[in-house]
């Protein structure tokens, strides 16, 4: 095979080489040091180009009004964004375990519920792979939580019921209120990022305690967060992270680290048992959260607001060790 031209190298870096054509290209790279060197150069170029474009952030402005043919009617962006994302989520049929996306956290958050109310637009779907052997206990727990997670910011209650992924709107709401209480210690300023271990409830009276106990039984690991151990995405989005090196991250994960093929990470973060690989995109930060659970590394992709669902799908397919 002749040397790879620049267009091919960039298509490779962008993950746009059709799978059928991938093998000969990789074979060539395996045997050609020149092309490997050029690939690295192009990768650096790509990263710098991305960085430059991201300097042009969108300045703040008033919320937009959607144009209609008749007299203009003011439509709240929040409700629109929320409605759109729920429809997307239902359409994708994402697994309950993954749950929808949460907006990227800021360290100064006081409580999960407050923070959600502040965000101008609600969550997007985080498509996560179905875990290899989903245990029924945590799965049913996750399913109960899913409607709550789906109903992030201030959505109209009737719309939430109508569009909930499962029928369990009532118990989910109960859990929502109970979540608010313990969670406000979950996000802490600097030093110890992950919240204190939950005292194992001898006779759990609240839904929170009950969920926590279930999770403890199911996985046999010590419960780490104060909040009920929701989907990986949930914890990943809200805990405060410590920057980390690659060896540290691999140690936490028991020797392997997953990355998205063709993308260059911005940084690594560790939150207790979880590692977060942070990628910069034109929409903000894309997080690849991963954690060792039952000796298996589970991961979830958390995309920033506005990130196209099909691109997210594509990237999910490119997560590799």
């Amino acid at each position: 095979m002749p040397h790879l031209d620049e267009g091919t190298l960039h298509a490779l870096l962008d993950g746009e080489i059709p799978s059928a054509e991938l093998a000969p290209i990789q074979a060539h790279l395996g045997g050609c040091a020149d092309c490997r060197a050029r690939l690295t150069e192009e990768q650096d170029l790509l990263a710098e180009s991305d960085r430059l474009i991201e300097v042009l952030e969108l300045p703040e402005a008033a919320p937009a009004v959607m144009p209609v043919r008749k007299a203009p009617r003011r439509v709240w962006p929040t409700r629109l964004a929320w409605a759109a994302t729920v429809v997307l989520a239902a359409g994708l049929g994402y697994s309950a375990r993954g749950g929808p996306l949460e907006p990227a956290p800021t360290p100064s958050r006081d409580s999960v519920v407050e923070a959600r109310a502040d965000e101008p637009a609600a969550s997007e779907p985080a498509v996560s792979p179905a875990p290899p052997a989903p245990d029924p206990v945590s799965q049913s727990r996750d399913q109960a939580l899913a409607p709550k997670l789906g109903a992030a910011a201030p959505p109209p209650a009737d719309a939430r019921r109508g569009k909930a992924a499962t029928g369990n709107a009532a118990p989910a709401e109960e859990k929502a209120e109970l979540r608010a209480a313990p969670v406000d210690t979950a996000a802490r300023p600097p030093a110890p990022p992950v919240a204190q271990p939950q005292s194992p409830p001898a006779a759990p009276t609240s839904a929170v305690g009950r969920v926590g106990a279930l999770r403890q039984e199911a996985t046999g690991t010590r419960l780490r967060e104060v909040a009920p151990a929701g989907a990986l995405a949930d914890r990943a989005a809200f805990a405060v992270a410590q920057p980390a090196t690659l060896p540290e991250a691999m140690r936490v994960l028991g020797g392997s680290l997953r990355l998205i093929d063709g993308m260059i990470p911005e940084r690594l973060e560790i939150l207790g048992d979880m590692v977060r690989v942070v990628y910069r995109t034109g929409f903000g930060e894309l997080l690849l959260a991963q954690e060792l659970q039952d000796r298996v590394v589970r991961f979830n992709l958390i995309a920033p607001r506005g990130f196209p669902a099909d691109s997210l799908e594509r990237l999910r397919g490119r997560v590799r060790e």
Partner: peptide, 8 residues
């Protein structure tokens, strides 16, 4: 791909 490589 060529367009993007040149542009970048």
């Amino acid at each position: 791909g060529t367009t993007l490589s040149r542009a970048r």
